[in-house]
Design a protein around this nucleic acid. Structure first.
Lengths: 336, 336
DNA sequence: ACGCTTTATTGGACCGTTCCAATTTTCAAG
DNA sequence: CTTGAAAATTGGAACGGTCCAATAAAGCGT
């Protein structure tokens, strides 16, 4: 059965019709006589014919494909967002082409390049960084939505995020309400989202007159980063009774740092994360967190993208959703 | 700047050369005079030219693309395997097109169909199920490697897995060595990998003369499945002092089930998982497990794929790696 | 049986590349 | 200069589909 794959011509020859008719039949047109349709169908099956997407997309001048760039596949929230994106994209009759980014900016750039060469009709970026290539994509007329990061100034770019400042404040409010005063923050590194969460933290602390208690420890949006930052916090001379960690993945690392020091959560120290990843909900982790509506953010992003595809000229939209507090077992009253 | 994207013809016109020469130049041929190369380069930049992958792949009759089907993106080990696959694929000058499967077999089938329509030159399947479409793919001459599941009989299909039976035995050996006798197993559902782990468990129990203690509880390869199965185990009249859970994700669910009953790990009950996902290594989870070399499995899989692409006729290869025991805090001596 | 409309079918141009054989240009040697 | 070989460039035929205008076949009322 080796040899070149059968083409539309082979099917036409076997069915004894023209390739145009096969083309029509394959796409389920109702202008094909039932008898012909049957003959074509059977010829196609017999040969194991499968249309060539490259040829089709060339002739059509559309790929029917949406590109998705996931910057951090290791963060479980990516999977949850992707689910939402996929669901919506499929519902619209398109399909997705997924690529993963990485810390290596050049590599990420070239992945985007590849997507564009494939003539994707839209681009969804999931992550907090804004890769250089995205800017080109947009000016090159490829509708783009970025999830997780707010972006308003750029024409042609829609974005969808949650209100990180409000979320961070919410975290501090909650801890403050539990009686905590020495509340530390483990940051998420050098990116817009992390900066907003940090400034929400600072604002809230200030508003409670706790400016002198503000203490930020450098971390990252990874388990390892959370471990590192929280270790620094706990080893400092300040007696932090609570730590607001930049995201859930890092917060799991934070829990590890606490455990490593023989301390107990939430008796000795309270930990609160951010994101609302599903895994954090398991009782064995039981992470209190500020949750984003991940799946629906994915869906909304895709919906936004299709809106723009249908109306390229429309003004950039930025949707900001409100996060919500999810209380679990990693936080408790200050027992000072 | 709207309008149709520039094509190779536009570049040729602007640079004052033929499209053939532009084609050559874009691919960095050394048969192009330096002066022309420069002119072409600058024309291309000026127009923002980007080659059309569909046209290229049509003319070339090769897509330079490897398709990857990930059956369960929510399991963190998927990301670890994908990393390995991507690294190797990139090193070979190809790129990957990732799609996600799901419980819905029809949907998964159609995702594979899409990959094949894109004329991917190879297929990597990550997961324990063997989707119907894969069989077609193989007989349709698309080299395929399946990761995580052993497969030997099918021509044209390579596979790479770990020795699940030995791994499961290893888990029981270890627990037995700690003094446990009433060792329960929470299964991973109805698939080959889960069945092998189960039979490894049974064999080991038998070899210790513990046949009457064999107790399997139905679970799944998800946190929820582990929670459910372990709950059933703990609520049963048998006094299980240890539970071997089918995979790490489920084991995290198992830890939750234990915690929910006010029991403490490992004092009251020991939990051991399977897979070696990175997250399990965090001290806050501290999951003892049977680890697979995930990233290198991904790399090896891709390497295998390229071997086959270069030599389509070669016999199917099955690589089986040995898993290793990683001891952390979820297991301890029997204190009964 | 006759036009006339409707329904089926077809050939060929085109989509944006690559490849190849053929042509033009360049250049060193005689 | 001429000449032949090497280097640079080119036109046009693929690749496997879709689309459109044109043609062929069927149906239908009188």
């Amino acid at each position: 059965m080796a040899g070149p794959r059968p083409t539309i011509k082979d099917v036409a020859a076997l069915a004894g019709v023209s390739k145009s008719l096969v083309s029509l039949a394959m796409r389920g047109s109702d202008r094909v006589a039932p008898a012909s349709a049957a003959a074509i169908q059977s010829a196609a099956n017999q040969l194991g014919y499968r249309p060539n997407a490259a040829a089709r997309s060339l002739a059509d001048r559309r790929s029917n494909t949406i590109g998705v760039l996931v910057q951090d596949l290791h963060n479980p929230i990516s999977a949850e967002i992707i689910d939402g994106v996929q669901r919506q994209v499929r519902a619209s009759g398109y399909h997705t082409m997924l690529v993963t980014g990485s810390e290596d900016a050049a590599l990420e750039q070239s992945e985007i390049e590849k997507l564009l060469e494939f003539q994707v009709e839209g681009l969804v970026v999931i992550g907090h960084r804004m890769p250089a290539g995205v800017r080109d994509a947009i000016t090159g007329d490829c509708p783009t939505v970025i999830i997780t990061r707010a972006e308003s100034e750029i024409a042609g770019l829609d974005s969808i995020s949650n209100n990180d400042i409000a979320g961070a404040r919410m975290a501090v409010d909650y801890l403050h309400g539990l009686g905590h005063r020495a509340i530390a923050h483990v940051t998420g590194g050098d990116n817009q989202v992390a900066r907003m969460r940090k400034s929400g933290y600072e604002e809230a602390m200030n508003s409670y007159g706790l400016a002198k208690n503000i203490a930020c420890y450098e971390g990252a949006f990874t388990d390892e980063g959370g471990y590192r930052g929280t270790s620094a916090a706990l080893d400092s001379k300040h007696q932090h009774s609570a730590v607001f960690v930049a995201n859930d993945l890092a917060a799991v690392g934070a829990l590890a740092a606490v455990a490593d020091r023989g301390l107990v959560v939430p008796k000795d120290v309270s930990i609160i994360g951010y994101d609302g990843m599903a895994l954090g909900g398991l009782r064995s982790i039981g992470l209190t967190t500020i949750a984003q509506p991940l799946a629906s953010m994915g869906e909304d992003a895709a919906a936004l993208l299709f809106q723009r595809i249908n109306d390229p000229g429309r003004l950039p939209v930025h949707i900001e959703l409100e996060p919500s507090l999810v209380i679990r077992n990693s936080t408790g009253a200050y027992l000072g």
